[in-house]
């Protein structure tokens, strides 16, 4: 049962840096335009404790790990 989306994912990985480069050409976002960005919900992990619990569940039930954290699992569950 090979991962059917692996090829698409590799393509996505290749294309994403281009998105960043493309973003450099977009219109600047001035400080007075950052009202939405200043909201706490506008972050990759707005609920860190719930995210940590979810990641612990996934880590203990699956063979993968990783993301935006740099620590190990800290438990013997995998």
């Amino acid at each position: 049962m090979k991962s059917p989306r692996a090829r698409h994912c590799r393509l996505l990985i290749l294309l994403l840096p281009l998105t960043f480069l493309g973003g450099c050409a977009t219109m600047d976002v001035q400080p007075w335009d950052r009202d939405l960005l200043a909201e706490e919900a506008m972050s990759f992990s707005p609920e860190p404790m719930i995210t940590a619990i979810d990641n612990h569940i996934y880590f203990s039930k699956e063979g993968s790990t990783g993301g935006q954290e740099v620590g190990g699992g800290g438990c013997g569950c995998n």
Partner: peptide, 25 residues
């Protein structure tokens, strides 16, 4: 366990934030 992370995040517009992170463990 030794982990290394390289990440970048970018504000693309007033409404849009994107990020790309690479991790090696």
């Amino acid at each position: 366990s030794k982990t290394a992370l390289l990440g970048v995040s970018r504000v693309l517009s007033r409404r849009w934030l994107v990020g790309l992170d690479f991790t090696r463990m």
